[in-house]
């Protein structure tokens, strides 16, 4: 078993009301020095079988068509080593 992580973020030019709300809250709570906050989504996919090029292409497809709204969001796909998992 391997884990593939898909990170989905709003495109940089798109307004992020949630991130903005977090950023506004920070100084109120005494956390200073943060100039901007952007909030995204992280998907952890446990993949059956080998994570080869074909599997990654499939995951890219599903991320593009389902996990991310590519009109307003970007995404990245990366493979993550799972601790204790057999190679």
């Amino acid at each position: 078993m391997a884990r593939v992580v898909v990170d989905v973020m709003l495109k940089p030019e798109i307004l992020d009301p949630q991130g903005q709300a977090v950023q506004r809250a920070l100084p109120r709570l005494g956390f200073t020095g943060i100039s901007d906050v952007r909030q995204g989504k992280r998907f952890e996919l446990e993949v059956e079988g080998p994570v080869d090029e074909a599997a990654l292409a499939r995951i890219h497809d599903l991320a593009e068509s389902f996990l991310a709204n590519t009109v307003i969001e970007d995404f990245t796909v990366k493979v993550e080593e799972v601790a204790g998992a057999a190679e």
Binding site: L10, K11, E13, I14, L15, D16, P17, Q20, V71, I72
Partner: peptide
């Protein structure tokens, strides 16, 4: 030709 669309914030 599809430019970025706008995202709204109703609370604002």
């Amino acid at each position: 030709k599809r430019p970025a669309v706008q995202v709204g914030d109703p609370f604002q």
